[in-house]
Write a protein that binds this DNA or RNA. Structure first.
Lengths: 172, 172
DNA sequence: TCGAATATGTTTACAGCGATAACATGATCA
DNA sequence: TGATCATGTTATCGCTGTAAACATATTCGA
């Protein structure tokens, strides 16, 4: 039923109409109400799927990088690249506010980020860790959004220069 | 005519309908087409106004802080606070992509940011300056968006701890 | 095995949206 | 004075999300 995922890859979120999904699924518009109470619920299901996908990609990147600052940077680059590769889905994930998830802090992606930070800043206070998480998340999220909104070019070299192990290491 | 600005302060962007603006202005829906070619143009005009307002607030904050890292941090905090104080307007500004403006890099807000960075990182190479701009803009933009989307609490103390002069100074 | 409950689909209808077209009216200016 | 232009109107179109009433096929307890 979540084949509306396909439509998200070819059109922005705001163009994703219930009726278009139904049409492309070869079913009547109101049939979707047998599976979701309303449009918001359908979008939330798609968002959950997207969040899982993001988490999986980050997990893979972190593991491949071998730990420490390299993994930390890899997680960040993966975050931005995911956004660029799936603009509508990424927007949807972020605008749905992880509402389906138990708690924002327990989502897979969040846990990964926290682990990376804890790994890199081992020995720091709990407060310092939290601030480091916010700075890292903020930076990659901001970079992603600015690129999606066309304020920055979706330049791969730019991503790498901004999210760089040497920077991660230097900034306390 | 831009009294649709008021509506942006009490409702999210996606709820800002042409007809609602017309209704609240006491005019027929189609009358707006005498002033703007379409809805997008009207939103763009509102966005331009918002961008100017953001630039003005940053200018004031930068001047009041007295220069250097203090001004840099003040500009960042102002950016985030503006977003929290005008959620719908901020979203609109960012989603409209400064399209009315000559060039993204010539908008007032952008020039201010660049100046701050150049002031703080005096002596650095052009490339380093650019990366520093991206990191700073990304971090504050990400922080703002994450708070607007409900992933982080709109906590004033959190803003100050993340955007802090000592951090700005330390990070090269 | 039969009958009811459930899941899943349908058609019809409604109000709200952005947008276009045709028309009215007042101010402005040659 | 008379044409032009700025600004408003109403009527209409196709799109949207959603609700209601109805049909049918599957499932499951007696």
């Amino acid at each position: 039923m979540n084949e509306g995922m396909r439509l998200l890859q070819i059109a922005p979120v705001e163009d994703l109409s219930l009726r278009a999904i139904a049409r492309n699924t070869g079913v009547s518009a109101t049939a979707l109400y047998r599976h979701f109470p309303d449009k918001q619920a359908l979008l939330q299901a798609l968002a959950q799927e997207g969040l899982d996908k993001l988490g999986a990609e980050q997990r893979a990147a972190i593991d491949a990088a071998g730990g420490g600052v390299e993994s930390f940077a890899a997680a960040g680059r993966t975050y931005v690249r995911f956004a660029l590769a799936n603009p509508a889905l990424f927007r949807l994930v972020m605008s749905c506010g992880f509402e389906g998830v138990q708690s924002a802090d327990e989502s897979n992606a969040m846990a990964l980020l926290r682990n990376c930070v804890a790994d890199v800043y081992a020995g720091s206070s709990e407060g310092d860790l939290r601030v480091a998480v916010l700075r890292a998340w903020g930076m990659v999220h901001g970079l992603a959004m600015l690129m999606l909104d066309g304020h920055l070019p979706p330049d791969s070299a730019m991503i790498e220069s901004v999210i760089h192990p040497t920077y991660v290491k230097g900034a306390g």
